[in-house]
Amino acid sequence: MKCSSGCTAAKVVDRYRPHEIVALVKAGYSEELINSDVIWACSVCLKCTEYCPQRVSPFEVVMALRNEAVSRGIAPPKGFVEMAKSVLRVGYIQEPMYTMTKDFEEVSRKELGLPEMPKPRDFEKFRQHVLLVGFERLKEIAQA
């Protein structure tokens, strides 16, 4: 259960435990998972793949479940679709925003002297590539 110890998503989503996803699939609960929001929590950091002592890759299992869900027209949670849309719009799951200091002061990257976030050089080309991966399908499902 090293995956669940280090999982980036599990730190913020209590219900999400990569080891549990693998165990559920092995035990025959794939249907339940395909229809569940929980599989959309993974942040694709690949730490589980890197450190699993048994060469299991929970990440890949999660991806397979997501692909199955999408191919059946099961919509991902709204937040996930919003992230996908944002990628198509600005290249990030979220536009770079301000951050908060210890004293609850809002500061922007500029104020911190940080450079602008880099953007895809040829944005249209980037969009086309992202669409190839199947983002369009996500949007369709979400709209339906």
């Binding site: 259960m1 110890s5 280090g6 450190y51």
Partner: peptide
Amino acid sequence: IRGSPMEILQDADGSLYFDVFDANTNRV
């Protein structure tokens, strides 16, 4: 604790910390 950490990290003050998922309590 039924679980092993993935990594051991160091805080800015030099202290060590790590997250570990405990299967007995289902908590990280």
